[in-house]
Amino acid sequence: MGQRGTRPLIVTAACLVLVACNPTQSALHPAGDEAAGVAWLFWLMTGVGAAIWLIVIGITVYAVLGRRRPTTEWFADRFILVGGVAFPTVVLAALLVFGLSLLPSWTEDEAPDVRIHVRAEQFWWRVGYELPDGSVIETANEVHLPLGTTEFVLTSPDVIHSFWIPALGGKMDAIPGRTNVLRLTATRPGVYRGVCAEFCGTSHALMAFPVVVLGPEDFAAWLAGEALPASGEADIFIANGCGACHVVRGVSETGSVGPDLTHVASRSTIGAGTLANTAENLRRWIAAPDAVKPGVHMPAFAHLTDAELDALVRFLGGLR
């Protein structure tokens, strides 16, 4: 039969893809303990599953096409009993015990290395870093975390979202009216990518964020930098009412409906992981955000002149 011929081909193809693909958003290229456990479990289950599939389909194809004598009732009964009852019961019980051992086992009193508050909104992420004194430094659309255990406190003001960093571990929903907690343990420094996994409206597809895993010292240094206020020629920003929605600490702290922009120039993307953070893309975004991200809440600033746009982009570009 054809299936037998195509299987090895598919496995080969799969291996090629794994080498060729982009690993930053992959559950099969783990950079954390939770993801590593699940990736290992996946390969194990796939191996066993492929073997079971080959055996069952092999028997079926032989029974249909093979030159053989009909089996006896006695054998058929044993076949159903062993194949349908005994074997699956044993395998599934073993899988269950092993699989559930991977469930998170931490308790309330074990403190994480860092606690990050993530508020998922249509279609971006409000990110707050909790300091030891309980105060929170707010940023947006990029998550930095140190090696070790990070606790994410997940909420949503509008609809249900789901916070997922495949390289570090499983996802957790952010549900209006509820607070969910997810702990992930990063083990490998690098730049990864997270996304919203629960369908949340028009631009659900464009709700991502870069994830930067740093060594503990690097993280502390980064956080100290993030805590500093910004400065710059903010007239254009204030004159056009940008401050009604965006906070730039040290410059304008009136409205906070949209993402914090205090250190926006240091981020690698804009529009929640949608566009690379370049001057050209910033212009495009400000003039017509809806063209980049349909359904976005930010209004278009198409009426700005080229000179005004230049000044605004220059101001934002200085917010390092």
């Binding site: 699940v38 069952v56 559930l100």
Partner: peptide
């Protein structure tokens, strides 16, 4: 027979996603 060959794959991946930690990764993907 085709149904069996396809369904068993679905059944096996079903067993996989029934394991909660694995589901955390692949849910909604």
């Amino acid at each position: 027979i085709g149904a069996l060959a396809i369904f068993i794959v679905g059944g096996l991946t079903g067993v996989m996603v029934a394991v909660a930690p694995f589901d955390f990764q692949v849910h909604d993907t």
